[in-house]
Structures are given as C-alpha cells and as structure tokens.
Design a protein around this nucleic acid. Structure first.
Lengths: 197, 197, 197, 197
DNA sequence: AATGAATGAGTCTTCATTCAT
DNA sequence: GATGAATGAAGACTCATTCAT
C-alpha cells in the first residue's frame, strides 16, 4: 500500500503466495481460461496492473500455483520416503498423501492438463521438471523395493507412473464404486500385488 | 460444391467427417479453446459460416469428434470381447487396440476426460454415456474372469477404470522408458498379475 | 413447383401476396430485423432464393406488406367516405375501421415506424404516398364538415393527422383505462367535440 | 484520458453523458439496431472496448439516452404543474415544453415507445415507469381541471395519453401545414375545446 | 423455374496487457 | 509503487444475398 517504498524480496515473495493462494481458488471454480485478471485483482484487493508487478503474465500465476502445490507434495512425500518402513507401506502412505492433494486441488490439476498446452514452452518445462521430481520419489521407493527383493524386477519409472496415474481413475470418475478410500485401497492393492515378488 | 442441389444425407455425413477429421488435427495441436472456427474453416477450405451448416456450434464439433473415436473403439472392443479366448488374453488384446486408438488420437482422448468441462450438460452426458459403455466392456471381461476364477474377487468396474487409466501413463509421458509396446507390456502385466488368482 | 414453365403475371402477383401474407405474421411476432429470410422461406414452403424471384430484397417484402394493408384500409375508408351520412358519423365509422386495422396488424405498423428509417429512399417514398392518400380521405371528410358548418374552421389536414394519431394512444398503451372500444369512444368524442361548431 | 487515475463519479457520469450525447445522434440517423458499437466508439473517439467501461451493454446506452431525456422532461413539467395558473394554461405550457423536447430529440422519442421492444425486460420496465410518470403529470392537471369544473368529466389518463400522442402528429409529418407552432396551437386548441366544460 | 449451398461482412462482447499519472 | 483507463485483437455466431446446377 505505501507508495514509493520498495518491497523487500521477502515481501515480494509473500505477495506472490498471497496472490496465488487466492487465484488457485478461482481457477478451481472457473478454470484458467475462464478466469480474468480483473477477477484475481479484485479478489486479492489490488489493482489489475499491480498483479503484473508480481507476475509478468497470467500464465505465470498458473505455473506458480501448480509448482507450489507440487513442491508441497514433493516435500511431504520425501518425508515418507525417508521413513524406516517396508517399501510397500511407504508406497501406500505416499499415495494416500497424493490422493489427498489431488482431492484438495481437484479441478486445479484437471485444468492443468487441459490448459497446459497453451502455456509457453518454458513454463511447460518448469512444470515438467517438478512432475519428474515427484515421479522420481515414487520410483526410488519401487527401486528400493526391487533391490530388497520386495518387488519383482520391473521398470521402476514405468511402474511409478502407472501407480500415480491409477489414482486419477479414482478422482475423476463420475461413477464411483465406493468411497474414494475404498477405491484407493483396491487400486493400491492391485498394484502392489502386481509387482510383488 | 454444387450450389443449389441439396446435399444427400450421405454427403452431409461425409462432410461432417471431413470437417471433424481436419478439426481434430487442429485441436490436437492447439487445444479446443485455442482453435478458432475461422481456422477450421480455412483448413477445410470453406467459408466460416458454411461450417455452421454442418455443425450448429463449435462444441458440436468436439463432441462429434470424440464420439466418433469412442464409437469405433467400442465397436472394435466388442469384437474382441466376443472372442473365445481366456479373459486375460482378451484384456490384453483390448488394451492393445485401446493404445493404438490413443496413439492415433493423441491428446484428443485426454480431452475426452477433461476438456469436456465447459460443454453444455447434454453434450457432457452424451460423451459420458460412451465412456461408460466402453468401461463396461472392459468390466465385463474382468467380471467374466472373476466368475471363471481366473481373477481374484475385485470390484470389476474399479479395476477396469484402473486398467484404462494405466494406459494414459504410457501415452502422455515425455520421459519414456522404452517403446510404447514395451511400456504397455509391462503395465498390462502388472495389472493382470495384480488381479490374478 | 413445375420447373421451366414461366409464371404468368397473375401467378407472380398471387405468389407475392402469398409470401407477404405469411411474412407479415412473422414480422408481427419478431419484428422486421428479427426475421430471417430463411424463416420466411420455410414458412412459405419454398426455397430461400426463390423468394428473391418475387422480391428483390428483404425490404421490399416489408414495403409490400405495409402497402397492402394500407391499400385495403384506403379502400374501405373510401367506401365510408362516400356514404350519405353526417360527417361526424362517417368520421367515427372510419376510425372504427382504422382501429380494427391497427388491432389486426398490431405490431406490424409499430415496427414500421421503427424500421422504416433503414429502408431505402424509394421504399420510404412509396409508403409515404399511401399514408398521404389515407390522410387525405380523413381530411376530405373534415373539410366537408367544415364547409357544411358541422365543424369549426380548422386546418383539415392537421386535424386529420391529429385524429389518426390519437388512435395510437389507444393501441399501444400498456396501462389501458378500459376496453379499446371505450377508450376509442372517448377519444373520438373529445376530438369531435373539439372541432364541433 | 489520464491513465491510472480512477475517474471520479462526476467524470464517469460526464463521460456517460458525452457518449450518450454522441450516440443519440447516430441513433437518430441510423436507428438503434443499425448502429454498431464500433461506430459509436469512433465517433466518441475512444476504443471500442472502452465504451464497455461506461456502459455494460449496447442496450444500456439506449436506455440511458431515453431516460435522460424523459427525466429532464419530467422535471421541467413538474415545475409547470406546480404553477398557480388555470389548468388549461398549464396544459398548454406543458405541451410546449414537450414539443420542444421532441423537436430536439426527433426520432429518439419515437423509439421510446417503440424500439424498446427487444430490450430486456428490466430495461423495458425502467423506461415504462418513466413514461408513466410523465403521463401522470399531465393526467394530474386534467384531473385538477375536472375537479375545478374547468373540464368535462373524462377519463383523465386516457385524455392525457391522447394529448401527448397528438403532439406526435406534429412532429413526424413530412407534409406540414404550417410551422410546428401553428400546428401545435391548433392541436392543443382542439383538445382543450374537446374536454372543455 | 427453382433451390440450397456458400460466404464475407458484420454483430456484440471479452480480456490480457500496457502506460501515463 | 500503485493503479485503472485504454485498447486492439480476437471469438463465436448470423444473415442477406448470390450462383451454379
């Protein structure tokens, strides 16, 4: 609000989070394309063009929003990865976290898959890196399981992707066969059974 | 092209396919929202407004495109479902077909599950029905396998969705671990192993 | 319907009436601008471009429709003008006819006043002539009344226009104070009283 | 013109008047439907989309234009209604004002009664209220005249409408019988004579 | 003679972004 | 630093009219 006083980097950063936090909610409701900068500005309570101080572009807001989510997911997942538990248990816990994230952000990730094509190459690349990072955490558990002869020798990355995508079938169905937890339970069970030694 | 002669239903239909065939390619590249009617018209080689003779609405083009694909998929899948082969073999063949379809239509299918938001309710319902129909074919095989004690007792619909979605992980990865066939092979193997008796 | 056989002038004329008869009804409902040539063609049961055989332009249909109505009105009014009755009685009868015409064509005439501005000069002129012709009939009665000392010496054309326009207030009100007949009764009474000797 | 400074309500209002002032002239020439937003923008000297800052909709421009006029008319008429003069004199003065307004706004007022069809219900209602308000002022004078035995016992609202509409005949004739004032003089005289005791 | 396919110009409206204050 | 006014480019869709059969 004060004019003429430069924002410290911390303030800048904080503001980005503030904006993104609000923008995410609007995106969830209306989709990325369906959300106007004006709406975001109003919701945040600042001028339209001040947004451009924090984000050079509308795209950047989406990218940042998604990154933020994925980073949190990665952080939590890394915590689980480091626990002293059998690989299959860690996998299950990890997927529980994952499911919770997806449920929270529900449509946000859905929109991502749609609108990502319209983003510029650089943004796409940044998001991809995060996605890879997450996949790699899951992969590392599977690899560990393989090396400890918990799991059969499968391609760990391929399996990780398989597992991650399996969760989607639980989230986006309009014809559920039970609670998300029940479906999740069965899905993970099939997967683990499938790669079990 | 002839001017005052009514198009026969066949010609009408043929033209719809022609338009959709071209539109699909543009959609794949730019997304549905990112594609302007003008672009489609130009690509097809007709006037903007002539499109509207064949499709009352932009939405209709997408719906038709998706329906067309899914209907073909359903048809071919039903053929396989009726074969006299063990359930797991039929499942594998079915997924092979599915994968081929996905490869041909690339991002288009992704939208089936996704860009569909934003279409009017009726279009959504029509597409959903097709999706259900396809899921049900896969489900029926799994159910059959369960009743013949090939497979464990799992929720067949849940498992079917799981399997179908697993294929996505093969298609949309930008970090493949082998040829699509190799990834597919492993995915289906994990799944079948996972539900095997 | 038969192809290649020239239409006789009578047939041509008859078709114009047929088209206009139907078009008028659509105009009444949707206004002139709101009516598409396609609609008219469909309602008449002929091809869009065949309309252009009978009317070179959409405008012409409106002009013809209005002319037709006014000509009928003129004809009937002339009949009354020639009767052997006191001028005020004839005036009253004439206005009764007028009111009936307006009621029948309701919005048609209303639209005229609006859309007439978009018509080309020639069409406007043609309609104007008819309007003048009608005004002159009413005027002649008033003049006669003046010369026979039924009425005071007023400008007859001015008075005629006044009377004619008075009827509008009855037709287009959304806050009627009684039946159209009652309002008409009072209006004409005020007018006649106003010009009475 | 200054870029980042919010327009004060006064400026906002002033701009609306500026736009409407120009738009009215174009409307008069080409009609409402016949006028494109682009034309208005160009005439005002601003970008097409800037219009939408002042008016959310094309309709709103027309409604505002009409309301503005009628409100002024009402205000001035109320002034006259409150004068200490015989009812017929006030009626005459009121009609003089009315005529002047009509002359200034020419076809615009015609639309008030007419082009209004096609506007959304709410706009129609707003305009109708204003029209009623004006009619009621005229009516109240007539009622007063009746109660003071200046006028015969007629339906005051009906008579008011009659009088108001009579003025139209003066304005929209293309075959005048004298100056507007002369025609007006005769019209009002006939009317007053018509309802005189 | 009859017709419908074809179309280009035009409609209102939206929005990310810039820029002058 | 902050802001909102300004805007051009775009988007889906409509329609009177023409023209080749």
């Amino acid at each position: 609000m004060p004019k003429g006083i430069p924002l410290t980097p911390e303030e800048q950063s904080q503001r980005r989070f503030e904006i993104v936090g609000i923008a995410k909610n609007i995106f969830k409701e209306k989709g990325f394309q369906g959300t106007a900068m004006r709406e975001i500005a109003e919701a945040v309570g600042m001028g339209k063009s001040s947004l451009y101080e924090s984000f050079k572009t509308k795209d950047e807001i989406l990218v940042f929003a998604l990154e933020e989510e994925v980073l949190q997911l990665i952080e939590q997942s890394q915590g689980i990865a480091g626990l002293d538990l059998p690989p299959d248990i860690r996998l299950k816990q990890m997927m529980q976290i994952y499911l919770k994230f997806m449920q929270t952000n529900n449509t946000l990730f859905l929109w991502l898959s749609v609108e990502v094509h319209g983003l510029n190459a650089e943004s796409q690349k940044r998001l991809q890196e995060k996605r890879y990072a997450y996949q790699d955490i899951v992969r590392s558990i599977i690899e560990e399981g393989i090396s400890k002869s918990f799991f059969r020798k499968v391609n760990a990355l391929n399996a990780a992707r398989l597992l991650i995508n399996s969760m989607l079938s639980i989230l986006y169905t309009s014809r559920p066969t039970g609670s998300a937890e029940e479906m999740w339970d069965e899905a993970i069970e099939i997967f683990c059974n499938g790669i079990k030694m």
